[in-house]
Design a protein around this nucleic acid. Structure first.
Lengths: 350, 350
DNA sequence: TTGTAGGCGTTATCAC
DNA sequence: GTGATAACGCCTACAA
């Protein structure tokens, strides 16, 4: 497979595919111009004469030249890469967001650098150090545990997009989902179905969104004139197992309920299983509402009524916003409002 | 936040956190040695006198020096980053593998660069170009569509670990899961439960593992003296919806069956829903077995009997193997054998 | 408009 | 052992 004689037809493709090292300097030499000219053409940094431009373009194609981002990074300070701090790369919710980020970024010639903070501020800080040392041009942080101040400081260094909180600072753009409204919608849906004894499986209160969802639940209750009962609120941890255990505790407590609103889908799945084990049918005996609209919600049994959160859109928007920031523009995009997806896990109280 | 006077207690932490640019050269100057010496200490490239070493170590700590991987990459030819070609970053199965990769890599000081090929050879090739241009030190390719030859060629350029196929080549290590045996186990489980009319929802045959699973299904049938019936095999595409549709077609075909073996869990979830809609209970009326043991299998209703595939382990092993390749060693790790996880979706034929 | 020169932060190759 | 001195591949003043 050495590029012997047959390197005729498409030397470009051949070279590119084979990974021959073609440098900008070689391109310059090949068409008798200076390296700077080639660089300028590559970056559109200045106006060059059409003839040279064309000659260079051809040389680039023929030689199969690919600029070296490493060198570019060292010299120009830009690496065309952006850091993405997620919490767990295999999260069913954030995974979809990552995908959105990837799509948007790669389309713009940027590469994402994914790192996971595992819901741990210390680890997140380490992640950020890694990203910084890799000289990313900007960062997207998906709902981290970092303090607002840390973020503001980070934003002084480079453009930052943060999700899951409201925050204003120079060089920083925050994208927040209306968790309160989502939870209100979910609870209202159950109320409108005639349910009054609505249990709530909450998320870990250290998550800001978990707190908001609890607020939304309470607000809906209040608006409907239903008294808030702490005994109906079960703490969970956003994982299936905790939803399952929450329901077990709930049933064991003998506190009557006809519906459950789970602060996320994963816990709702666990809750459904717990109900199933106890011989309670969804929705016949108990109505169940989740939150997030994970990919699996549509095919769970029964299909889960839930609050749709546009994770994919979140990712895209975060990426686009960062790109705008990087281009010196001011992002203005906002997340779509929460929407109730009524499926088969809820029904009117008999 | 400029480092004014108060830069006392922990200048290191301060500098590190604030992102002040401390260069190797500054460290060298700080303790009166040459940059080369500092470099050598950093990389263990040569023996340096204990005194200097200590002085340098202290200076590094005090200044909060963090080596710049970009510059390192340019100079040394290594970037301490490895490319990971996955198919979809939000895949419930591969996501877990990515996590394993990330863990193992970051522990060794390497950063993964994730790119998605979306089951498309062309796109995969582009991904590889991107990774190559980013000068990754090696690549991990999760079950791609690339030809064996492409991979062999790639491996001539840099160390490569590939999963999902058997292949031997210099600089290349292949990690394959025993799909045949897994499918055989699943089918055998149903047979041992007394089932004879076992439907099979297959994956897309262009996936090599899908073909293997079909083979395993047939082998088990044959071993039990049960005739293979093409009418019981429904083509699927590895997604929930295709499992659902497969079951609908199956039922409509009026071909009798008492059990279903789905070539992956996602399709099994869809299948379960289809059965549910048709009023067929799992496992009372129909037994159902999946493949993969996704995170959701344990909490589906009913909990899904399936073949456990150690995705996390797959990721770790791939990473470790690449690290070994990078270190000039020869990897020897192999994936654990498939295991049947018997849960509640199967039961003996009445 | 285009070329020259210096530098980005390290590592590698030499001498000393 | 240790220190100069080149690269590494590109960008960006600055000069022409």
């Amino acid at each position: 497979m050495k590029s012997t004689k047959s390197a005729r037809k498409t030397p470009a493709a051949a070279a590119g595919t084979q990974g021959k090292k073609v440098t900008l300097e070689m391109v310059a030499a090949a068409c008798g111009v200076s390296p700077s000219t080639v660089s300028r053409i590559l970056n559109g940094t200045a106006i060059v004469s059409p003839e040279k431009r064309e000659a260079v373009d051809r040389a680039i194609a023929e030689l199969g030249f690919i600029p070296n981002p490493i060198a570019r990074g060292l010299a120009g300070g830009r690496t065309l890469s952006v850091g993405v701090v997620t919490q767990a790369i295999d999260s069913p919710f954030y995974g979809v967001a990552l995908r959105g980020i990837e799509e948007e970024l790669s389309q713009a010639g940027y590469s994402p650098l994914f790192v996971s903070g595992h819901w741990n501020a210390e680890e997140e800080r380490r992640c950020i150090e890694v990203l910084r040392s890799r000289r990313v041009d900007g960062m997207i942080i998906l709902t981290g545990r970092l303090s607002d101040d840390s973020l503001r400081n980070l934003a002084k260094t480079m453009p930052v997009v943060i999700t899951g909180r409201t925050l204003t600072a120079p060089g920083l753009y925050a994208l927040d989902f209306n968790n309160f409204e989502g939870a209100r919608l979910a609870t209202h849906h159950l109320l409108s179905l005639g349910h009054r004894k609505i249990a709530f499986i909450s998320g870990d209160p250290i998550h800001p969104d978990a707190a908001e969802r609890l607020r939304g639940y309470r607000a809906a209750l209040e608006a409907a004139g239903v008294r808030y009962k702490p005994a109906l609120v079960m703490p969970g941890k956003y994982f299936e197992e905790s939803g399952l255990m929450a329901v077990e505790r709930l049933i064991d407590s003998r506190e009557p309920f006809t519906a459950i609103f789970s602060a996320n889908d994963q816990m709702a799945f666990g809750a459904a299983l717990a109900l199933h084990r106890r011989g309670l049918r969804v929705p016949d005996d108990i109505s169940l509402v989740g939150f997030d609209d994970l990919a699996g919600a549509e095919h769970s049994i029964p299909p889960l009524t839930t609050i749709h959160q546009a994770a994919h859109e979140l990712g895209r928007l975060a990426a686009v916003s960062l790109l705008q920031l990087l281009a010196g523009q001011t992002p203005t995009g906002t997340l779509p409002e929460p929407r109730l997806i009524a499926r088969a896990s809820t029904r009117a109280l008999a």
